[in-house]
Design a protein around this nucleic acid. Structure first.
Length: 205
DNA sequence: AAATTTGCCAACCGCAAGTAG
DNA sequence: CCTACTTGCGGTTGGCAAATT
């Protein structure tokens, strides 16, 4: 991808990253990791630093899997989406080596179409012809920690059960941290000393 | 062979929440 | 508390390549 015309001007450097820029970013982050911390060269304009962060999280992180999604990953994404909705970061937390952006793109380009071709509404995960089903459980994330459910069954606040999916979801530290114990600082990969790509559930305790 | 359309996906944008001073 | 700044997230855009006309 070339740089878009608008990006050549006004001291900006938007657009696709070059190999050289990637190398510099990786070297910079590794150096910073050794120094344990924060950039020392003064403040940068937010858009540039945000771009660095995105590039690192979505592309340069060493644990990224890349390549085609497997059938298992497909199924897992569909199940998780039916439970979590467009919470791509949460879904990504369950798929080691995949980023939220990657999953979001894959959903929009592949899975949506696949579900539609099967006659399933990708938004609701119900048959398109199915109007209102009474035997379903709806989980809303509108309010933190509140489960709005049409089912009367009591369940522990830390996990949910959806009858027609044959899937139980327990909120716990993501797979990533279990598989890869050796990480910068305290799990996840460091971007200027910050953990990225792994949600820290302990914060909420 | 050239023009047009379509699909893919990296990157951008803006908002909300978190944090530091 | 209040303000400014940073980070994380989800939605959207736009460029490239492949497919089609």
């Amino acid at each position: 991808m070339g740089r878009s015309p608008c990006c050549e001007k006004a001291h900006t450097n938007k657009g696709a990253w070059t190999k050289e820029e990637d190398d510099r970013l990786v070297a910079h982050i590794q150096a910073r990791a050794r120094d344990a911390g924060v950039p020392t060269e003064g403040r940068r304009p937010p858009p540039l630093r945000q771009s660095w962060r995105l590039r690192w999280i979505n592309y340069l992180r060493p644990d990224l899997k890349r390549g085609n999604f497997t059938q298992d990953e497909d199924d897992l994404i569909i199940k998780l989406h039916s439970l979590l909705g467009n919470k791509w970061s949460l879904i990504a937390g369950r798929l080691p080596g995949r980023t939220d952006n990657e999953i979001k793109n894959y959903w929009n380009t592949h899975i949506r179409r696949k579900l539609l071709s099967r006659g399933v509404d990708p938004a609701t995960h119900r048959p398109v012809t199915d109007r209102v089903s009474s035997n379903t459980t709806t989980i809303s994330f509108d309010k933190k920690g509140e489960e709005k459910s049409s089912s009367s069954e009591e369940s522990p606040s830390s996990w949910y059960r959806v009858p027609d999916l044959n899937l139980e979801l327990r909120i716990s530290p993501p797979v990533q941290s279990q598989l890869e114990p050796v990480k910068s600082e305290a799990g996840g990969h460091s971007f200027f000393g910050l953990r990225t790509g792994v949600l820290d559930y302990r914060k909420g305790e």
